[in-house]
Design a protein around this nucleic acid. Sequence first.
RNA 1: GGCCCCAUCGUCUAGCGGUUAGGACACCGCCCUUUCACGGCGGCGACACGGGUUCGAGUCCCGUUGGGGCUACCA
Length: 495
Amino acid sequence: MPRQVVTRFAPSPTGMLHIGGVRTALFCWLFARKHGGRFILRIEDTDTDRSTDDNIRIIEEGMAWCGLDWDEGPVVGEPSKWVGPNGPYRQMQRMESHYKLAVEKLLENGMAYRCRCSKEDLDARRKLSDTSDAPFQYNRGLDLGKGCCDKNYDASQPFSVRLKMPEGNEPWLENGNIVLHDCIKGQINFPAGSMDDWIIARTGETGQIGVPTYNFCVVVDDTSMEVTHVIRGDDHVTNTPKQIALYHALGFEPPVFAHVPMILGMDGAKLSKRHGATSITEYQELGFLPSAVRLALARLSWTPMVDGKALESAEEMIMTDTQMIELFDLDKIHQSPAKFDMDKLNWINHKLIQQSSWQELEPHLRPFLPTAWGLKSDEWKKVAITATQKGKSLAEMAVFLEFCWSAPTVFEGADKHITQRVIPALREVASLSDYEHDKLHASFNEILERNGLKTKDLAQALRVALCGKTISPGIFDTLYLLGVDEVKARLQRWI
RNA sequence: GGCCCCAUCGUCUAGCGGUUAGGACACCGCCCUUUCACGGCGGCGACACGGGUUCGAGUCCCGUUGGGGCUACCA
């Protein structure tokens, strides 16, 4: 019986939750959900200088907002708690229970050794190789013989720990190569001789093992958390041979690897701050639906196929989560990076807003509205939302409703639209007292006829008088949302 | 510098030896219209370059160019 699928998203809390990270997390999530497996959130905080609790909370909340629920991982806002059988899920909480034991084991069986070369010494040696064609490799190539390699070990001295990388004749190598069989990128060979003995644990207190490094923790965690599929960004491919060697040193079989292409900005460079919004929080604040973010991200470097054919029409592009989960597959992910297209996100968001019921939209829209919103009736909210679903974002919908909360002080286009011709009609509107849609429609027609006006004349005059501008929801909805008393009050100065 | 990855409209992409190279977003035009939108119809627009292989190449191979990643006691 094949093992249950287990995927994980393992961000480091050194900053905002990046949109590229969210896409990777989404793929992990989709894959786990598709196979009825488990999805783990693990916090990689071994860079103690840059990791903060605030950033951890931002990650947790960002993931939750995106709808990427994790089966195992930290409990939101509770640093000492977690769910899942293989915790803790914050690496700094796994020092004693996991990493230390693994380092000691490697030291004992000779797969790793202590290194007392100082940072300064290493930097100097590295500099030496800068001028040559060959890369710096610890105790190899130009550096051969300069590494201390555990010689004259003195337990009272500080030390770091390095992993012995293969020499070339280990049985698990393929023709002298460490081979990565990646389910997205295919087979990639790394000559064993091109690797060097990398540091698995930093220099610690005198005589003690220090904080282990990323490449080490990843492997220890992925094995102990039973991760079957490592799905991560392209920027990790060159780390993979190091990790594969560690798996073998530890006596484990490497998992399945899938390296997803990066997300680029419109200029082709890695997506960063200067391209605009990169953190998930910003997208939330901009008024995007989480479902729109999921969809837009999913379509970057992934083409869902139905019966061997790509989805083509605009309607088909708007998938539900259920459809995405059903259609998702790692071998349908492209090898080439994709540029992030804000226009497409806007379009998807708009589409989703149009398709949603007012009840679905309400909780997402609420944060963009004043507290007065909460006091309104369901019927009123329903009209308000359906009248503004033309908006491209939640933020835009909120702007469309601004006239409900504050009376205008400036009136754009008043000269053009509020003419002597329409004032008598305005007066008649002010005298109406039933704003039920059909009745209002009928009353309008009579007023129009009596005054020899077109719908456009009256509607625009009312918009300016009531909202201060020529843009508003449908005129009947505008009146309803304001209510009889407010309409009369706002019309007073014109009639 | 070294190692690795990538390459079809502006963008996301379909294509898996024979296509008028298809769709979506954006953009432009027309129609609809109660403003803003929506919607409908139409238009613009691509195989980076050079060699092979083949009767035939966007599709396979090799180079070039361009872009990206890694090269830390960061993750």
